[in-house]
Design a protein around this nucleic acid. Structure first.
Lengths: 204, 204
DNA sequence: CTCACCATTGTGGATATCCGCATACAGCCC
DNA sequence: GGGCTGTATGCGGATATCCACAATGGTGAG
């Protein structure tokens, strides 16, 4: 899926100017004239970034931002605003907005920000996908296998695990084997590392 | 070490007001009248947060912020500014400032932000310390032990490692044993998990 | 020149892990 | 009832890991 800039602004002149600007630098874009219109098509399947006007009739950009997060749309958001408002900018950024730009904006700088947001989104997607892969693999495990895996990750020996679960060591070995197979690893070390992908939804 | 608010403002009235305000909520503070004066005492050993005036004679708050980061002082920073300046607020926050507050500020809200910054700093310190512990343990390993450990973490068998390094399996076993001992773990799984602390300097 | 540390290797045994081959029972779907 | 999956168990062997005891050679510090 190609990265795309999703523009939401009630002013058609602004939308056209943005689309033309982005087009001139080879960035694809789509535009909506209201937050509601955009939300109707927003999913977690969009790639790229959002350019949201803060002040719009009806739902404003900030509310739209909250709604997007509420429906698991994690697209990076660049706010555009005509009136300097520090508290709003601060809140938006602390809530995870990618940037907050005052109009009139510098054309080149804005496109650079869009491209930076694209790069950010690609990293986000890569992280999300690796997390989803692990989750998908984990979902294949049975309850018992989860119990055994948890103890394997605690570094416990099969014998200890068998005692704790009140089953034979041989049974633990079988579970262990199935766990490795389903998780597509060949050792406890690889298993540990595969799962560590879940812990560090890090960086930016 | 107790958390403390480090105030830097050229206006003594502002400093006094802040200290009085913080004191009223039980927050300890120290104040400086210039960025240079503060930098002279700033180290990576401070705990709590900074309250920096943006506009000051000589070095301003933003520059001070950059300098602090340059000398590895990772204290969370709350900027105080008298004149709304969105680009500056955005840049500060994107560079990692904790907050950016316009004067006149709401007393209670500001103290709440300071307390939030304290909590943030405590998490940062906890992460830093766990990372430092691992680094300290790692620094005890010899070059050869590093080479072996790297291969253990790749899930390789002692036999394979021995072949790769052109040494006997027995030697690898000895290294392995020393690695576990120095890293204070009892299995490759624990080793993997201990090192995963380095990867995820996550969250906030 | 000792002493400590590092890297290296060997022998041999106690444990653990990995696996194929088999069996068994319970629950579920067709 | 027959097929399928999940759980459980046993036997036995091939590998691997863990470890104590023992030894050699190099290097840098005192």
């Amino acid at each position: 899926m190609n990265s795309m800039a999703y523009i939401v602004d009630d002013d058609s002149a602004v939308r056209d100017a943005l689309q033309w600007l982005l087009q001139s630098r080879g960035v694809q874009s789509k535009a909506w004239d209201s937050a509601d219109a955009f939300l109707a098509s927003a999913t977690s399947e969009l790639y790229g970034c959002c350019l949201l006007d803060v002040r719009m009739p009806g739902m404003n950009g900030i509310e739209l931002f909250d709604r997007m997060r509420a429906i698991q749309c994690q697209l990076p958001v660049i706010f555009l605003t005509g009136h300097g408002d520090v508290p709003m900018a601060v809140k938006a950024l602390k809530d995870g907005a990618f940037d907050f730009v005052e109009k009139p904006y510098d054309d080149n700088a804005l496109v650079d920000k869009v491209l930076a947001a694209f790069a950010h989104d690609k990293r986000r997607i890569a992280r999300t996908e690796s997390v989803n892969l692990v989750r998908q693999l984990l979902s294949q495990l049975t309850q018992r296998e989860h119990e055994v895996m948890q103890r394997i990750l605690a570094g416990k020996l099969n014998k200890v695990i068998a005692d704790e679960l009140g089953i034979a060591m041989r049974t633990v070995e079988v579970h262990r084997s199935h766990i490795f197979e389903k998780m597509q690893v060949r050792s406890a070390v690889e298993l540990s590392q595969r799962l560590s992908a879940l812990g560090d939804s890090s960086a930016s």
